[in-house]
Design a protein around this nucleic acid. Structure first.
Length: 460
RNA sequence: GCGUCGGUGCCCGAGUGGACUAAGGGAGUGGCCUGCAAAGCCAUGAUUCACGGGUUCAAAUCCCGUCCGGCGCUCCA
């Protein structure tokens, strides 16, 4: 039985999907107005991990993640750069998808765009107005009325009263609103801004209504999991809940939030200017290093990004790969019975709120056991460990097999030639000559390992 | 200010009352293996979990206080 922390229930709960064997998930995607940074990658990875694990456990997962392609940030950025809003959004959406591809994040089954759902949003706003859950303010737009929603604030453990006391502490309250907690469903267009016609005049949708419209349209009125970064819990997700329940939709049965990524002790954020773009990081560290680093931290724990941490993960990945290389060189790359005990421990760790750190510990334990078994000549045990490591690491999106071998033919040919020469020298016990060749290869970025099965090499 | 989460070895980071005699990874050190390396294996490393009290037969884990930090209350992954 899988269980995980449900933000709204404030507890770890057992997971029982609406439809047995199937899981419907909606995860808030990016607002596309700039390059994605490593923080975005962490949230994407958290839900990619959850999706992959649920699939590994045999669930049929429908995964929806949106693109917010119209909002204040896009309008402002477009104005700065001279591009139109659609041009800007399209450009950054492409960058986002490219970088997430590079990072190994699987594509969602559906990737809806806010601007493609204006009709559904207007219908939904109309329903809320008809029900008395929303009201229009002339010249400003349509607002959701929080008054009737007594659970408002439950996603962050606060009451409406507490929130009202806090309202206005940092943001000026709009005096036209009936309640300081009320928020916009439809924003009347200002001159020069993109707009759509509506019964309440030209304007554009509020942020929260987008996700409600897209999620319910693609997944139905009730779906299993709604996810997003921790910083979206309030107000965004809270407002989605209010809107959905204002129309008596079942909506998300569970809420999962991924923790932030810090740099030098504070949240990586565009507004703080302390971000590293995903693109820049992946130019230095390969995608699997970042994935492994993130998996070594629980998804609900704030993690620190540092060069030390990245270097550590890089070493850990090397260990995994070295094991795989060694196993393949030993002829273990063939069917074998998996290690049932290890699989059980791995599953127990993951079933308990997606405990990737503990799950990885199981994988590393297996690597040690497999290496020891090979040292001892127990190929049966080693083969079992190898097949299990590949399966479990694969469930987490870590691919050890088929690592990139895109080096050019000339390099390969030269390396093979030199290795053959070195082999001859070693056989003749001319170690000075052999070592000279090894140094030569090292200078070209090629590291070799002599194994009982022959010499293997790789690029550094 | 209010709310909330957290402070674990040199570093990253699990663990939230009893087999913790504190997982796993990285770095270090010693040994084995190796022609030498690389890889690997073994060993070693917190008598202790921010600090001070308290509860308990038993606490890193619960309670109180103090200090420090993150996040939310505003756009945000």
């Amino acid at each position: 039985m899988i269980s995980f922390y449900d933000t709204r229930r404030r507890a770890v709960v057992s997971f029982e999907p609406v439809v047995p064997g199937q899981v419907s998930m909606y995860v808030c995607g990016p607002t596309v107005y700039d390059d994605p940074h490593v923080g975005h990658a962490r949230t994407a990875l958290t839900f990619d991990m959850i999706r992959r694990y649920l699939q590994w456990r045999g669930f049929d997962v429908v995964f929806v993640s949106n693109i917010t392609d119209i909002d204040d940030n896009i309008i402002n950025r477009a104005a700065e750069t001279g591009a139109t809003e659609p041009e800007l959004a399209a450009r950054y959406e492409q960058v986002y998808i490219e970088q997430m591809d590079r990072f190994g994040i699987a594509h969602p089954d559906h990737r809806p765009h806010a601007t493609g759902y204006i009709e559904q949003m207007l219908d939904f706003i109309g329903e809320l107005v008809d029900r008395g859950a929303a009201y229009a303010i002339e010249g400003k737009g349509v607002y959701f009325s929080v008054a009737a929603h007594d659970r408002y604030g439950d996603l962050i453990g606060r009451t409406p009263e507490e929130l009202r006391e806090g309202a206005g502490a940092r943001v000026e309250v709009d005096v036209d609103k009936a309640d300081p907690l009320d928020f916009a469903l439809w924003k009347a267009a200002k001159p020069g801004e993109p707009d759509w016609d509506s019964p309440w005049g030209p304007g554009r949708p509020g942020w929260h209504i987008e996700c409600v419209a897209m999620a319910t349209d693609l997944l139905g009125e009730t779906f299993d999991i709604h996810g997003g970064g921790d910083d979206l819990a309030f107000p965004h997700h809270q407002n989605e809940v209010a809107e959905a329940e204002g129309a008596e939709l079942g909506f998300a049965r569970h809420w999962i939030h991924g923790a932030m990524l810090n740099v030098n002790g504070e949240k990586m954020a565009k507004s703080l200017g302390n971000f590293t773009t995903l693109s820049d990081l992946l130019d230095v560290y390969e995608p699997q290093v970042l994935r492994l680093l993130m998996l070594q931290t629980h998804y609900r724990t704030v993690m620190e990004l540092s060069n030390d941490a990245l270097a550590g993960a890089s070493g850990a990945l090397d260990r995994l790969r070295a094991w795989h290389r060694r196993a393949v060189a030993a002829g273990l790359d063939q069917p074998a019975a998996p290690d049932a005990d290890a699989v059980a421990r791995f599953t127990a760790a993951m079933d308990d709120d997606f405990g990737t750190p503990a799950a990885l510990a199981v994988v590393f334990d297996l690597v040690r056991e497999g290496n020891a078994a090979l040292d001892a000549g127990d190929t049966g045990r080693a083969a079992s460990a190898h097949v299990t490591v590949c399966d479990l690491a694969g469930a987490l999106g870590l691919i050890l097999a088929g690592e990139a071998r895109d080096e050019d033919d000339a390099l390969v040919a030269q390396a093979e030639k030199l290795l053959a020469e070195r082999d001859e020298a070693r056989k003749a016990r001319d170690f000075a000559a052999a070592d000279l060749i090894r140094d030569q290869l090292a200078a070209e970025g090629i590291v070799i390992e002599d194994t009982p099965g022959g010499t293997i090499w790789r690029k550094t």
